[in-house]
Design a protein around this nucleic acid. Sequence first.
DNA 1: TAGATTGTTAATCGATTAACAATC
DNA 2: TAGATTGTTAATCGATTAACAATC
Lengths: 208, 208
Amino acid sequence: MTKISKRQLERYPIYLRYLFILRDSGVKNISAPAIARALQLSEEQVRKDLQVVTSKEGKPKSGRDVLELIQDIGNFLGYKDSTKAVVIGCGHLGQAFLNYKGFEKYGLDIIAGFDIDKNLIGTQVNHKHIYDMKEIESVLPLLNAKIAILTVPASVVNQVAKKLVKGGIKGVWNYVPVRLDVPDSVVVENVNLASSLAILSHKLNKGE
Amino acid sequence: MTKISKRQLERYPIYLRYLFILRDSGVKNISAPAIARALQLSEEQVRKDLQVVTSKEGKPKSGRDVLELIQDIGNFLGYKDSTKAVVIGCGHLGQAFLNYKGFEKYGLDIIAGFDIDKNLIGTQVNHKHIYDMKEIESVLPLLNAKIAILTVPASVVNQVAKKLVKGGIKGVWNYVPVRLDVPDSVVVENVNLASSLAILSHKLNKGE
DNA sequence: TAGATTGTTAATCGATTAACAATC
DNA sequence: TAGATTGTTAATCGATTAACAATC
């Protein structure tokens, strides 16, 4: 199996989004150069990226089948059956996740939240139940959730992470700028918005 | 001036966070290898990264001055005076930004929001006024905001972007998965959470 | 057929890692 | 002084871009 770089993986949802638009407007076929133009990528890159995920070869002149591409990328990224996820820490960011519907297309099914706030516990946010953080270990296995979206304060993050592992979580989408201390078997994807901000900030100041 | 890669820029806020912790616990000096161990990076990488931003050279054996490093990284990223920002689109994600205090340390001062919702316009979220989206062009110059945090629906994003440019916005932190059509003079930093999710999803399914 | 698009192999580019002399 | 850490230069690694024959 060929190794896929992080950068390359990041491009697939971008292809997917464009392919959804094409599909919804009734387009049947699309070529790599056409995708490249639309998304401002290089032809070569698009061709290589698509090659990696597709089972069939593309046809010269006509390009590739849009529906097939959507299938292939979805399979490759593991969207086959949507994966159940829970939000750990239902502050403003956590609630934004509970309310957002956009990740369904990307194979993520957010089913519940956990918090320590007495006023939140037992309530529903966007029809999703908020459980007591204390119940993580007992409730998670019943919910059969594989992914945890972590949006708790930095001070408690590793204490919470320990519980998540015990509760059977296989992947953590970590929005807390702290390196998680979890077994290698648990997959962690860190999102550091301050890093993204740094790029913007640096570019802005360079230009002056 | 040496060119700085995106990856490299992304590391500076991570250094900063660690340096803040050191400072707050009274640590005066720190060496590149020590930082590398704490953040699980390579020694060489840390040394090179720090070299780029620092005015003075580090001292063999004792390492570098924590406060000076914080200063230098801050200057390099353009945190000198904090930059004023507005949130465009005050849905759940937008309100999460209005409520979040964590970016102050990273030079970002979120001062107001804009939305089209009549129920929101004129109210305050975390003591920040929500203006009518229609007023963008007239109000933005008065607020003297340089950065726009974009969290509007994809369908209106480019129409809104046009107004932002007219309102004098210099940088856009774009959370909408659509390529913005703005002049080259405007800096855009795209955040695509679906891309991040793809990495997690792929890793999870590969391991099975 | 001619032209666009394909897959593949080689060349380039850029970033990270390794090596090492200089120095507090 | 000896040892840790520094800055710098060279080697390695990986990803993107270029080139080109194959084909619908």
